[in-house]
Design a protein around this nucleic acid. Sequence first.
DNA 1: GGCATTTCTTGCCATTTGGCAAGCGGGTCC
DNA 2: GGACCCGCTTGCCAAATGGCAAGAAATGCC
Lengths: 193, 193
Amino acid sequence: MSNEKLTRFLQSTGLINAGQAEEIASDFIHKKFDKNSFLLQAGRISDDYLFLDSGFMRAFAYDTDGHDVTTGFYGSGQVVFEVASFFTRTPSQEYIQALTSCQGWSITHQRLNALFHARPEFREFGRSVLVRGYAALKSRMLALITESAAARYESLLRASPEILQHAPLKTVASYLGITDTSLSRIRKGAALR
Amino acid sequence: MSNEKLTRFLQSTGLINAGQAEEIASDFIHKKFDKNSFLLQAGRISDDYLFLDSGFMRAFAYDTDGHDVTTGFYGSGQVVFEVASFFTRTPSQEYIQALTSCQGWSITHQRLNALFHARPEFREFGRSVLVRGYAALKSRMLALITESAAARYESLLRASPEILQHAPLKTVASYLGITDTSLSRIRKGAALR
DNA sequence: GGCATTTCTTGCCATTTGGCAAGCGGGTCC
DNA sequence: GGACCCGCTTGCCAAATGGCAAGAAATGCC
């Protein structure tokens, strides 16, 4: 299978040129995930830094009452891993599960670190992945505080309509910080207005 | 002024030894901030990676309705900077302001990057700072979704009681994702129970 | 095809949180 | 002293969201 999407992704920030991208990409190995299978289970240490080539995943955790809460959605072209567990080598609190069958390119923590040491340009790229994730999380948090549930839903619809096609409503609801009942009502309201 | 707190901080993860810490710390310059002065203004590019030696700061942004929303509090022993602006060299959306008079040790983006390139151990340390911030943000988000405002307030009281001594109630409220009116009622309720 | 399970919607009502305005007490400035 | 501003509280009511349960619709399984 071609790793073309991965090499294009590596070049996308302008930090890595075509030749470097080819060499770096050759360190990633191809992986497939059946629908509903897990990339990561709570209690395990995240050891896949996975570039998602096709398919759709979600990350979730259980709160103290046993409800699962969606912490993130990932589509093709994104990097999927649990930052804290992967980099600090501690057991994950989260699960990451394939919502559809998925394919991607993975590298272990050890090999990623070796690449970071050997290749300053990839190191910069890795940092930019981290920083972008950080910024996205921050703006999601700000929206959670300042915007209504309906506004957050409509932003999500605009930004990532694919999510609604792959994830059941209640996982989308917990991602938005509301219940499935409320999201159902919001959708009805949005349709009428 | 002694940079002892900074050198101890650098050694705290075990990634950096005493001699390295001394050398790294010598690249930081001492800075003072009057109460209410700004470490960063919106529209500017964050160029201080500041280790806070003493004092208390808060970060905030204005939402679309013009309300200011507290995005973070920082006490002594913490690193204060706006991740996205600092690393991507783009204008900040946020302000960072001294709630008390503050002192700390600062390094510019350029010098920090030079240090990262020259010193693998400091690079690792820098990543661990980023990853810890990321994890903290994530757990704050989870609390925002799964816990009541009262529970979030009590967690904050337990984890960082100093905040309540330095920040007026309404900035704490916006940090918790509620209004000052609600926080006032929660405090009353908590006292009675 | 038919049964079981999951997903989504809806009604009813409770709870949480917000908006607004008034009031109070403690500072500060002149 | 008086006029002000600020931070916090409180009363009243409205709006947003949740909890629960029932039913309809869609999906999966044998």
